[in-house]
Design a protein around this nucleic acid. Structure first.
Length: 930
RNA sequence: GCGGAUGUGGCGUAAUUGGUAGCCGCGCUAGACUUAGGAUCUAGUUCCGUGAGGAGUGAGAGUUCGAGUCUCUCCAUCCGCACCA
């Protein structure tokens, strides 16, 4: 009986579908396990071989846990809102809902081909009103909450209002955009609009005028993590800074909890480190500097190096700093203005690319160093950022490289206050660089002299606080997340404006449906596309918000929604939430480190605070799968001609490499020239200069797999050729899951050979050839070794070694012509998570009625592994090695005597006597002889 | 520049977690059955050497009876951040 994967796979696909094999419900009698994939954005290109890597891995884990008796939640859905569908809509007029629907259908087909064991009854789509109702609901909750820093949790905004009514802002310790100071009487006299403005300062979802990353080409603002090197992640368009009225989420209120929560979850160190860095906690203090020519104003700076305050020789403000206009003197006014204008018009790209040039300008103003009482000049420079700390710095050129560069450029004094260990004081004017190290002894620093830097920082802060010069504080680099997009294809905000004051809808009026528009473009006067919708207003005629939510809005709480996807009364029912808790294993790419993975932790903590969910971390364990890269192929066009030269001859010409489709390449690097001629017009009449053997060899390079680079390998074709089981095994066999690696087709043959060999253990030409003979010790031993290895390796997510393990046992059994049921039946269950189709087929051939997916995982018997012939390595004087075997369960003295008497040792001792035997964990490790 | 990770045959990788380095697969070499094979099977394959043997986990040191594994320095590659005061 031949291994016919096509029949087998379509048969079981159909069976699983008909029987809803993977449908899961809460079952108190079983322990739960929640395995989740990052849901995909359904792009028009369909799946390529890179996508399923993580899906297959998590599916193996899910199937394995199911076999171990867990009740496994393993759902899938679609992150359906997003830019590409909208861009496509703008170009073609096709409604994004239609494109998205088509793409999703294609994705689901492809996912099912691979044999992923999803419970499709729990599918969610972010663009489905039944789903985004809860995205909107979460927004309303954020809007109606503030962060109480004393209780360290989110509280209803109404609590804040009653506090204001009673005591004004006095007793309030809340996360806010700006420290406000008002009395109860002030509050009660405020107009509705004024009250709204004050509350905006505290709400967790708030409206504010802020500097945003504006991308003119995309016509929308972007979050910080959507901008890399000054250009948009999607599309690579330039981004500029621009003030705009925008919704934001006050994620900064959760900075500390987001940081400390990292210690409670099993994520890779690299992702945790990226998040720590992004949150960017630093302890230090705020110091107030008096100004020489503006008595009433204080210049606040943040510093982590309070110890260096005696070394401050000038101050620098960021161009946006509000005090600039007050400090600047008449003589310098025009020049300073010009500098600020220039800085404002620099895009993000320009600001970051010109890192090396030092620019700035003197304001004419002076501040007074609170400790030395000396007057020091105040400058403006764009190396100081308004967004961090107070937007102003005290410059210590001797011990900060940026201040040093600035001092050199403007010939400002440099005063050394820290003497590193083992150095003598030098002339700062001859220094080539500053001494930034945080160790050494203080000098020229009054009461701090002789102290170590660490102690000096503490003492300086003490002094500053007790003399009312400032206060100790902690600063975070984390910024609030901008939450508005000027786009059509996203969740509408459940917000309307009454006399210019924003109000949220009531819960019973959700969802607020995305309206139809005539075009997916901004209006003529620059309003977002939703402004085109007719009747985009409440029944009373108040206009709705025209912005939509960003891409990450829908993915914040989707893992929670899967627990109870059809609930229309709550985001998640209490019962379902108490049962499923949170995700036990989350698999996905690391590119979401500072986006989705941070925002969804934040939202989960918020939902926890308001009692909507029972856990404050969404994902207990995270595994980041690497990317599968494509191998791009190139032909080399001679400059200015329609001639293409083969790879090995290209150095004789001046050439441009041109990407060609990977399917035109045969035998690894030979180009099918006829195919190429037909592929695209430009090659039709081209001339090809080939190698001596008449072949055209292409060049190649490993790049990201992408449609535009013509290097995409589609899984469907491979499934057609080898079967899904082979594809699954091969993707796992490729190497460690976390590693990125180029797709290499050659190796798949080996896996294909293996699976055929595996099949032949069970079936020969006539059919099933499994016997009832009793296995011998060797055969039982290798089975149990495999059980142990596979179990351990799946838990460690080392899936490539599992595949090797299957090959080893298969080779062993084939060599022995072992077709014994007692060995082969458990082996089917072992391989079922990896190659579910063939496993189901063999399981039923073996005469079982139930599906293997719910069989019992074979128990591992450690006794079976006790190895009577294993020879322990023993070295004598650390050099010569002998291999002896001895019983494990005897006492040390007994073994000692026995070992010394061993003939294989005696011949190595060369007449010396044994001096010492070193035991480690019950094993003889070494024998020292003299 | 800072932070993190990684470096093992021709290639992808493995190593009971400090104990015989190179499992498994690809590729390659030879052979068998074949009209043929890009099918299947057998044997071999870290390097040098005909051989006995020697060398060997990016380089160099260190700890240890013993290091691919631990420590330090350097080099290379990848990822993240980049005026964060």
């Amino acid at each position: 009986m031949e291994y016919n994967y096509n029949n087998i796979e379509s048969k079981w696909r159909e069976y699983w579908k008909q029987n809803r094999t993977f449908k899961v419900t809460e079952d108190e009698s079983k322990e739960k396990f929640y395995v989740l994939d990052m849901f995909p954005y359904p792009s028009g290109a369909g799946l390529h071989v890179g996508h399923p890597l993580g899906y297959i891995a998590s599916d193996i884990f899910a199937r394995f846990k199911r076999l171990k008796g867990y009740n496994v939640l393993h759902p899938m859905g679609f992150d359906a809102y997003g830019l590409p569908a909208e861009q496509y809509a703008i170009q073609t007029g096709q409604h994004p809902a239609v494109t998205t629907e088509n793409n999703i259908r294609r994705y689901k087909q492809q996912l099912d081909l691979i044999g992923l064991s999803y419970d499709w009854d729990r599918e969610v789509r972010t663009c489905d009103p039944k789903y985004y109702k809860w995205t909107q609901w979460t927004f309303i909750k954020l809007f109606n909450s503030y962060y109480d820093c004393t209780k360290d949790k989110a509280m209803p905004i109404t609590d804040l209002v009653s506090a204001f009514e009673k005591n004004g802002s006095k007793e309030v310790n809340a996360a806010c955009s700006e420290k406000l100071d008002f009395t109860a009487q002030d509050w009660n006299n405020y107009t509705e609009k004024e009250k709204s403005d004050v509350l905006m300062n505290y709400r967790l979802a708030y409206l504010s005028e802020s500097m945003v990353n504006w991308c003119p080409q995309l016509g929308t603002v972007l979050a910080n993590d959507e901008v890399v090197n000054g250009v948009s992640v999607r599309g690579g368009y330039p981004v500029e800074r621009k003030p705009m009225q925008q919704w934001s989420l006050r994620i900064t209120a959760y900075a500390e909890r987001l940081l400390s929560g990292l210690d409670t979850i099993q994520w890779s160190d690299s992702i945790k480190e990226i998040q720590r860095y992004w949150i960017g906690k630093s302890r230090g203090c705020v110091v107030n500097f008096n100004l020489a020519n503006a008595d009433n104003d204080l210049l606040e700076v943040f510093t982590t190096r309070a110890d260096t305050i005696f070394g401050v020789t000038f101050m620098v403000l960021s161009p946006e700093h509000p005090l600039v206009s007050k400090i600047v003197t008449k003589n310098y006014e025009t020049e300073v203005k010009r500098y600020i204008e220039a800085a404002k018009h620099k895009s993000e790209l320009e600001r970051t690319s010109e890192t090396k040039t030092v620019s700035g300008i003197f304001t004419g103003g002076y501040a007074i160093n609170p400790l030395t009482k000396k007057q020091i000049p105040v400058y403006v420079s764009d190396y100081v950022l308004m967004g961090y700390g107070t937007g102003a710095i005290m410059a210590v050129p001797a011990h900060d490289s940026r201040d040093f560069a600035f001092a050199k450029r403007f010939m400002l004094p440099i005063v050394q206050v820290v003497l590193p260990e083992g150095e003598t004081e030098g002339n700062t004017y001859t220094w080539k660089e500053s001494k930034d190290s945080k160790s050494g002894k203080m000098i020229h620093s009054g009461f701090l002299n002789e102290l170590d830097v660490k102690d000096a920082i503490a003492k300086a802060i003490d002094y500053i606080e007790s003399n009312n010069l400032g206060y100790a504080t902690t600063n975070y680099r984390l910024r609030d997340a901008i939450f508005s997009r000027q786009r059509y294809w996203g969740e509408p905000f459940p917000v309307y404006y009454k006399d210019g004051i924003p109000y949220t809808l009531e819960e019973k009026d959700l969802p607020l449906l995305l309206p139809e528009v005539d075009k997916f473009l901004p209006t003529e006067n620059g309003e977002p596309p939703l402004a085109r919708a007719t009747n985009w207003q409440t029944k009373e005629g108040w206009p709705y918000e025209t912005n939509t939510m960003p891409g990450f809005a829908g993915s914040n709480a989707y893992s929670i929604r899967y627990m109870d996807p059809d609930n229309d009364k709550a985001l998640v029912g209490k019962e379902a939430n108490d049962y499923w808790q949170n995700v036990d294993l989350y698999v996905g790419g690391s590119e979401h480190a500072t986006g989705h993975l941070l925002y969804s932790r934040f939202i989960t903590k918020f939902l926890f605070d308001i009692g909507a969910v029972c856990k404050d971390e969404p994902y207990k364990r995270l595994v980041n799968q690497g990317m599968i890269q494509g191998k791009s192929s190139f032909v080399y066009r001679i400059k200015g001609e329609n001639k293409y030269v083969s790879y090995n001859l290209k150095d004789e010409y001046e050439t441009d490499p041109i990407h060609i489709d990977i399917s035109l390449v045969e035998n690894g690097n030979e180009v099918n020239i006829e195919g190429l001629r037909q592929w695209r017009e430009e090659f039709k009449d081209a001339e090809f200069i080939t190698e001596e053997n008449g072949k055209y060899i292409c060049g190649s390079e490993v790049e990201k797999m992408s449609k535009s680079l013509y290097n995409v390998i589609n899984p469907d074709a491979l499934i057609e050729k080898y079967g899904a089981d082979t594809l699954r095994l091969y993707e796992m066999f490729l190497g460690p899951i976390e590693q990125s690696k180029p797709w290499d087709v050659q190796g798949i043959e080996g896996v294909s050979r293996f699976i055929k060999k595996f099949w032949r253990l069970y079936c020969n030409e006539e059919g099933l050839c499994v016997t009832d003979d009793k296995p011998d010790h060797e055969e039982t031993k290798i089975l149990h070794r495999t059980i142990k290895k596979i179990e351990d390796d799946i838990e460690r997510f080392s899936l490539n070694t599992c595949v090797s393990e299957f090959m080893i046992i298969t080779n062993f059994l084939t060599d022995r012509k072992c077709h014994k049921k007692e060995i082969l039946e458990p082996l089917v269950i072992l391989i079922a998570p990896f190659a579910p189709f063939i496993a189901e087929e063999l399981w039923s051939l073996l005469g079982h009625n139930e599906t293997v997916s719910f069989a019992h995982y074979p128990d591992f018997d450690p006794q079976m592994l006790v190895d009577t012939d294993y020879k322990y390595p023993v070295s004598i004087n650390g050099k010569t090695r002998a291999f002896v075997n001895y019983a494990l369960d005897k006492d040390v003295k007994e073994i000692e005597n026995e070992v010394v008497a061993l003939p294989e040792l005696q011949q190595h001792l060369e007449g010396k006597t044994v001096n010492k035997i070193i035991f480690v964990k019950g094993k003889i490790i070494n024998i020292v002889a003299k």
